[in-house]
């Protein structure tokens, strides 16, 4: 019998303690970020999709079309083309397509590039209605960015 009352008392008490805790949290300020109105800045190491890096002066892509990134990618989402301009010695990038739909954001491509020609974007607002919106033409993006 005393066990019964002990359990009853203890149980009821635990319920009121619980109410106390939720009340405490209710009057605390909210912790959420009101997303579309406020946004967070991603830390510098944030791994978004990849982006070509332009030369600081000319704005032309630093990529030398060595193809290491393409080889490193586990899911073959990088397609790049380059050609040697007439008379030029070095290859010039003509197209850099990232198929973001299969990218696993592993970062192996960036690590494998010895020319610092690609980097991670910090953009995370990626949403779109169609799949082909995620076939990024990185060269074009770079050109648009450098204006």
């Amino acid at each position: 019998m005393s066990g019964y009352f002990k359990e009853l008392f203890g149980g009821t008490k635990s319920l009121f303690v619980g109410l106390g805790i939720t009340f405490k949290y209710m009057i605390k300020p909210v912790v959420t970020v009101q997303y579309p109105h406020e946004t967070l800045v991603m830390p510098p190491r944030f791994r978004g999709h990849i982006e070509l890096v332009g030369d600081e002066e000319t704005g032309a892509p630093k990529c030398v079309v060595c193809g290491m990134c393409q080889k490193a990618c586990p899911t073959n989402c990088i397609t790049l083309t380059g050609e040697k301009p007439e008379g030029g010695k070095k290859k010039v990038l003509t197209g850099y397509i990232l198929n973001f739909t299969t990218c696993s954001l592993c970062g192996l491509c960036v690590e494998s590039c010895k020319f610092d020609a690609i980097t991670f974007s910090r953009d995370y607002n990626l949403a779109g209605p169609r799949k082909d919106a995620y076939i990024f033409d990185l060269k074009k993006r770079l050109e648009e960015k450098s204006g």
């Binding site: 209710m26 009057i27 909210v30 912790v31 959420t32 009101q34």
Partner: peptide, 12 residues
């Protein structure tokens, strides 16, 4: 109420 208890805002 649910929102504020859980540290959120709720409908807004």
């Amino acid at each position: 109420v649910a929102g504020h208890i859980q540290g959120r805002i709720g409908p807004k």
